[in-house]
Design a binder for these strands. Structure first.
Lengths: 139, 139
DNA sequence: CTAAACTCTATTAATTTTGGCAACTGTCAT
DNA sequence: ATGACAGTTGCCAAAATTAATAGAGTTTAG
């Protein structure tokens, strides 16, 4: 599996927030209901997005979440990089830790590097607005 | 992470078997040592390859594993489809089970379908021989 | 006082990895 | 011949790790 529920849900939430965009904050419960996703699980996903200033959370009555970036410049790649444990095609290509000492003569590595670039380029070419408008650019 | 250790190891073993190709059978221990991979784990990976006639296993003294298909026609995609739990970009796109009832109006689905095609096309364009020769086709 | 995000922790489920034993096959000693 | 032996795959289950979900309480803002 390439993308876990975490990244998938994050993207759906952002699309939801973009569709219902306004100055109001939208409570998590409302999003969770609309998207049919566990409230508590969403919470942990949104935390990463808040921390990285993709969305803003406001506590208390009338609080909730609100997009804080333009959906037309927010790419799927950027979102997934924040929510997925790792977007690298294989563990060997993770920046931190995991670096394999066979790198120099691993015959399969070029395959993974190629895949990596392909996937990154694709995901970074699609924005939240593209998803809403149904205009996914051909690769 | 896109590709798990299972698929990664499978590919490395097949490259190894192709490099050392002959009528002889190569014991798992030898491959595991050469590749630095747990013997037991490899075993479970090779099982899937044996069952699908990619390689042949022979028990007893002088036994081991041997390629039973031409590495020039065996693609990375074919291997990964057998070893990875799922190559689909997201769970929703798995044939069996997992089918999501939001499919019809999910705004993110086209993204995943596009990613799926991209990845499949790429992986199926590369053969074991390509990996050995270092000739990975541009996409 | 109430509705909401936030924090921290525990539970459940799925995946990955390891271990032990059975079954098979060739070789060598008798 | 043949029986014991050693090297090997094959099978089944258990342990370890990671992902997904749920719960209870704390803080904040109207």
């Amino acid at each position: 599996m390439i993308i876990s529920t975490k990244g998938r849900y994050a993207l759906r939430v952002l699309v939801d927030l973009a569709e219902h965009r306004s100055d109001e904050y939208i409570p998590l419960k409302e999003i969770a209901d609309r998207q049919g996703i566990s409230e508590k699980y969403l919470e942990s996903i949104l935390k990463a997005l808040v921390k990285n200033n993709i969305i803003a959370g406001l506590r208390g009555k009338g609080g909730g979440y609100r997009l804080s970036v333009d959906p037309a410049v927010l790419t799927a790649g950027a979102v997934l990089r924040l929510t997925e444990t790792s977007l690298a095609s294989v563990a060997c290509l993770n920046k931190d830790s995991d670096h394999c000492e066979r790198m120099d003569d691993c015959l399969t590595l070029p395959l993974w590097k190629g895949l990596d670039k392909l996937v990154c380029d694709y995901l970074c070419s699609v924005t939240i607005s593209d998803l809403i408008n149904g205009t996914i650019k051909p690769v």
